[in-house]
C-alpha cells in the first residue's frame, strides 16, 4: 500500500489498518486521527506533523520513524518499538506508552504531560526540555519498571511525576524541575542533578550514591534511608530536609545549607561538612566519624549521642547546641 492509497481509504471511512505493511511511506502532515495501526509495520516511515491523535498503535513497529511534531495525544502506544525514532517536539499528552521501547529516542521539547510511561525503556533517550508534568513512570511489580538509564533529561519538567522505583542511573537531570516528584526507591546512582529543583521531592530509600547535587534545591525533601555515599552536594540547599538513617558517608557537603534538617541516625562519616550550615539541625545519634566540620555552623543543633570524637571541629560554632552528652552550650 502506498501513501495515497492509505489516505484515500482513510478518507473513505476505513479505520482498521492493523498488521498493514506501511514501512518507508511519506505521511508528512497526514490527518489519520483515530486510525487503527495495531501491530502495523511503519519502520522508517515519515510522519512529521501527522495527526495521529487517539490512534491505536499497539505493538506497532515504529523503529527509526520520523515523528517530529506529530500529534499523538491519547494514542495507544503500548508495547511499540520506537527505538531511534525522532519525536522532536511531538505531542504525546495523555498517551499510553506502557512497555514501549524508547531506547535512544529523541523526545527533545516533546509534550509528555500525563503520559503513562510505566515499564518503558528510555535508556539513552534525549528528553531535554520535555514537559513530563504528571507523567507516570512508577515501577509496578517487576514487569513495569521504567528505565531512564543514561537518559538526557536536562531542564525537563517533571513536576509531580511519579518515578517511584525508576532506574535513572547516570541520567542527566541538571536544571530539571522536579518539585514534589515521587522518586521513592528510585535508582539515581551517578545521576547528574546539578541545579535541579527538588523542593518537597519524595526520595525515601532512593539509591543516590555518587550523585551530583551541587547547587540543587532540596528544601523540605524527604530522604529517609536514602543512600548518598560519595555524593557531590556542595552548596546544596537542604533546609528542613528529612534525612533520618540516610547514608551520607564520604559525601561532599561543604557550604551545604542544612539548617533545620533532620539528620538523626544519619551516617556522615568522612563527609566534608566544612562551612556547612547545620544550625537547628537534628543530629541525634548521627555518626560523624572523621567528618570535616571545619567552620561549620552548628548553632542550636541537637547532637545528643552523636559520634563526634574523631570529627574535625576547627572553627565550628556550637552556640546554643545540645552536645552529645546532653549539655547545652552557651
Amino acid at each position: 500500500m502506498d501513501a495515497k492509497e492509505l489516505i484515500d481509504r482513510y478518507r473513505s471511512g476505513q479505520r482498521d489498518f492493523s498488521n498493514a505493511n506501511l514501512c518507508g511511506l511519506n505521511l508528512y502532515g497526514a490527518d489519520l486521527m483515530g486510525i487503527d495501526l495495531t501491530q502495523a509495520n511503519l519502520h522508517g516511515t515519515t510522519m512529521i506533523f501527522a495527526y495521529l491523535n487517539r490512534a491505536k498503535l499497539y505493538k506497532a513497529n515504529l523503529i527509526v520513524t520520523k515523528l517530529s511534531g506529530a500529534y499523538l495525544s491519547q494514542a495507544d502506544l503500548r508495547g511499540v518499538k520506537l527505538r531511534d525514532a525522532d519525536l522532536h517536539g511531538a505531542v504525546l499528552q495523555g498517551a499510553d506508552l506502557r512497555g514501549a521501547d524508547l531506547t535512544l529516542v529523541n523526545l527533545m521539547d516533546a509534550n509528555l504531560m500525563d503520559a503513562d510511561l510505566r515499564g518503558t525503556n528510555l535508556s539513552g533517550a534525549n528528553l531535554t526540555g520535555a514537559c513530563m508534568r504528571g507523567a507516570n513512570l512508577r515501577e509496578e511489580k517487576r514487569v513495569y519498571s521504567s528505565s531512564l538509564r543514561g537518559a538526557k533529561l536536562r531542564k525537563v519538567d517533571l513536576r509531580g511525576a511519579n518515578l517511584a522505583g525508576a532506574d535513572l542511573s547516570r541520567a542527566d537531570l541538571s536544571g530539571a524541575f522536579l518539585t514534589d516528584v515521587n522518586l521513592r526507591g528510585a535508582n539515581l546512582n551517578g545521576a547528574y542533578l546539578t541545579d535541579a529543583n527538588l523542593r518537597g521531592a519524595y526520595m525515601s530509600d532512593a539509591n543516590m550514591n555518587e550523585v551530583s547535587l551541587s547547587g540543587a534545591n532540596l528544601t523540605n525533601a524527604r530522604l529517609e534511608r536514602a543512600l548518598l555515599m560519595s555524593a557531590d552536594m556542595t552548596d546544596v540547599n537542604m533546609r528542613a530536609a528529612i534525612l533520618p538513617d540516610a547514608n551520607l558517608s564520604m559525601a561532599s557537603l561543604s557550604r551545604a545549607k542544612l539548617s533545620g534538617a533532620r539528620l538523626n541516625r544519619a551516617n556522615l562519616s568522612r563527609a566534608n561538612l566544612s562551612e556547612a550550615d547545620l544550625s537547628h539541625a537534628d543530629l541525634v545519634d548521627a555518626y560523624l566519624a572523621k567528618a570535616d566540620l571545619a567552620d561549620a555552623n552548628l548553632n542550636n543543633a541537637n547532637l545528643i549521642r552523636a559520634e563526634l570524637s574523631t570529627a574535625n571541629l576547627i572553627g565550628a560554632e556550637f552556640s546554643g547546641a545540645t552536645m552529645p552528652d546532653g549539655k547545652i552550650n552557651d
Partner: peptide, 17 residues
C-alpha cells in the same frame, strides 16, 4: 528566614542565622 521553622527553636532571634 528558614523555609520551615525547626520545632526546637528557643529564642526568636536565633531563627535568623
Amino acid at each position: 528566614l528558614l523555609e520551615s521553622e525547626p520545632s526546637s527553636s528557643s529564642s526568636p532571634n536565633r531563627l535568623y542565622p
